[in-house]
Write a protein that binds this DNA or RNA. Structure first.
Lengths: 206, 206
DNA sequence: GGCATTACGCTACGACACGTAGCGAAAGCT
DNA sequence: AGCTTTCGCTACGTGTCGTAGCGTAATGCC
């Protein structure tokens, strides 16, 4: 979350309940108002805290929304479904379910847009949202290699490159489908996507 | 662009020069200020027009930025490079070059984020930005079929589905690589992406 | 218990951008 | 000419921003 100062052991501690109330209020405001109409004063009122308390903990709207949205991705996991295809379909459907929620739709793209001009914000997004997703890619590939479904990478550099590539393809496709094309990434779509991802374009219409 | 009223033939016509000056000023402001700090008053000053003139032509910041960014995609085309792989690499590199420009980076994601709560804005984006890109997918596939590189789709419904899927995969991957991972979609990356797209995951590390 | 320290709620404030109204002047058409 | 629409300009009420200041509440340390 925000920058902890572990050296401060004296004085009144920050209310942990206020943190959760503020983040929940932020998500609710995202649902009802969207990113642009969301104001920090309104969030403070919803959470039952003073506006100044909010500014003492977060630098601004983007930082607050990143933390509020990041909690949505806590539920992401990668259960072993027995095959690479089934693993991919499972995790993509989870990701799609999160992106189907209005608080994720309005919040996520907005903070990414803001991060194009704010290096610190991009790092915050990477640490609290992106890295958690990317770990699933590495896990899934390791499993597929163990099953003999994928050849081991040529070396560590090549392994990192291809993991980054696969991550951009998977996450990018789901995000684009959901937010730009504005169509649901439902089971049928995910099946088609997995087929292309595993077999390439020639297998698209099989 | 904005809603033309062809019935109005009398009175002083709108200055076409003002349109181009406003859109150019919008892109310049996007580069220097980004989306959040961009104000319509500032754009009007840069363009040398009154703020009221701007409001007479565009409903608000999102609509203005959509039109300003859409012009960046005018240069997209699909030259015949002889093979499907070469065609894909060519158009993806063009798309990546546009997304590398700061006015596209800051503007595009912001209006997409805004469009999650604004149906009219999403339609505007689709008509002036997305459809132009999607046409390239259809063209590229038709060429590949003519060359015998891809099998013809099973039917018109399946053809539309797979075209939408491919479009989301290609555009999504490039956007995610550029804006979320914040890494350049350079020639090396595009080669790897094309290999995966054509041959599937097994071909990733070849 | 008393003290220092930090967080909290509240109020008030200047700064800024928003979007609109009203006016006179300019530029086209018939 | 006369009509119509756009343009530049000024001014205004509204809302949000982010901060300052104050008194109060909650903890750790002596």
């Amino acid at each position: 979350m925000q920058s902890r100062t572990p050296a401060s052991r004296t004085g009144r501690p920050r209310s942990a309940a206020a943190d959760t109330a503020i983040l929940a209020a932020t998500r609710q405001a995202l649902v009802e108002l969207g990113w642009s109409r969301l104001t920090l004063g309104d969030v403070a009122t919803r959470a039952g805290v003073a506006k100044t308390t909010l500014y003492r903990r977060w630098a601004g709207k983007p930082e607050l929304v990143v933390d509020a949205v990041a909690e949505l991705f806590d539920e992401l996991e990668l259960p072993d479904r027995g095959s690479l295809a089934a693993d991919i379909e499972g995790v993509v459907l989870q990701f799609a379910a999160i992106l189907a929620r209005p608080e994720a739709r309005s919040g996520l793209m907005a903070v990414v847009a803001e991060s194009t001009r704010d290096e610190a914000l991009r790092e915050r997004i990477r640490a609290s949202i992106v890295d958690r997703q990317k770990r699933l890619v590495l896990e899934g590939r390791a499993r597929a290699e163990a099953r003999g479904e994928l050849p081991p990478p040529a070396g560590p550099a090549e392994a990192a490159r291809s993991a980054d590539l696969i991550f951009d393809v998977v996450a990018g496709a789901v995000v684009h489908r959901t937010l730009v094309s504005a169509e649901p990434a439902d089971e049928e779509w995910v099946r088609g996507f997995t087929r292309v991802l595993l077999g390439g374009l020639g297998a698209a219409s099989a």
